[in-house]
Design a protein around this nucleic acid. Structure first.
Length: 305
DNA sequence: ATCGGGATTGCCT
DNA sequence: GGCAATCCCGATG
């Protein structure tokens, strides 16, 4: 019935108009022609993601009119983490190239009681200072010696939101280049959905640097956040809440469902089937029928248990 | 001064 | 799915 339509309609709405133009179809075909036969099997999904939205109509009028200001960031951490979903992170490179990605996965780190946060117990260090700065302040920290993670501070002492995954929207070739620089020579080319599907991957793909730490996402000229003019906030029923990733050592706090992602989106880094099953029963949608899924979104829907 | 571990990733089996 | 890579930060002495 209509139940499953809740999945990824927002995404489809954002992508479909571009695909319907003849120019876009040509672009897709060109991209697909470069793919192997095996990859073509997933062409429906890849179509959506291979769209090269260079200077698409969303961004040609006036970039700044969609920019989110400091008010947006001034909300509680969990609230902000959810509000980020569907918003567009923009990186303006030195040569004027603009890279864009839609945020599809975040995590909330509350500080204070939250033992898994760098700012647990109100602990302020040289590294995490940005977490205590005004909402909208970027917190970039190195991890495992080789990678970076990007957060944005929210309302609340020491609270911040980790950005975990983006759907690449614009500048995929540049992103691929930036990502390939760290990979083995001769490795296969990354699919679009693999460019930003992880916290450190998105930093590489958008060339988010350590020096961005403590800068203001609401006013910076090299990186900012935009509302997508064609889609509203993510609907609650489209947001999956799951335990955060990679913090198992923090006991009880590791279980808090403070990772948020758009259900069924192919760019999410780790799908949590259990959380999705619970979300499903919580919404009392139990009799799914795959035949009523719009074809544009079919590939984006997770297999329900 | 030293030491242990990490909000990850990519390659290998 | 296992595991190495790789080094900075922060805690400890």
């Amino acid at each position: 019935m209509a139940g499953r339509k809740r999945k990824m309609l927002a995404l489809a709405a954002a992508v479909a108009p571009e695909q319907s133009t003849s120019t876009r179809n040509h672009s897709n075909r060109t991209e697909l022609n470069r793919s192997t036969t095996k990859q073509k099997k997933h062409s429906k999904c890849e179509n959506a993601l291979n769209v090269e939205t260079e200077r698409s109509h969303y961004f040609t009028t006036n970039d700044l009119q969609h920019r989110l200001g400091e008010d947006f960031f001034n909300q509680p951490c969990i609230s902000l983490a959810k509000a980020f979903l569907g918003k567009v992170l923009v990186r303006r490179c030195a040569d004027g190239t603009e890279l864009r990605g839609r945020i599809v996965e975040t995590e909330a780190y509350l500080g204070g009681e939250d033992k898994a946060s760098h700012s647990a117990g109100g602990k302020r260090t040289e590294r995490n200072t940005a977490m205590f700065m005004k909402p909208g302040t970027i917190y970039v920290y190195p991890i495992y010696g080789i990678y970076l993670c990007m957060n944005v501070s929210s309302e609340g002492e020491g609270a911040a939101v980790l950005l975990r995954s983006l759907e690449p929207l614009q500048g995929q070739p540049v992103m691929r280049e930036l990502r390939a620089a760290r990979r083995k020579e001769g490795a296969r080319q990354l699919k679009n959905k693999e460019l930003c599907n992880g916290p450190s991957k998105l930093c590489q793909a958008l060339n988010i640097l350590r020096c961005f730490d403590r800068r203001d996402l609401a006013s910076d000229t090299e990186v900012w956040l935009e509302r997508d003019p064609d889609i509203g906030p993510a609907k609650p029923q489209d947001i999956i809440s799951a335990p955060r990733i990679g913090i198992e050592s923090h006991g009880e706090w590791a279980k808090k469902p403070w990772r948020f992602y758009l259900c069924g989106h192919p760019c999410v880094s780790v799908v949590n089937k259990e959380a999705e099953r619970q979300s499903l029963s919580g919404n009392a949608i139990n009799n799914l029928d795959s035949s009523d899924v719009p074809f544009e979104t079919e590939q984006h829907n997770v297999k329900r248990p």
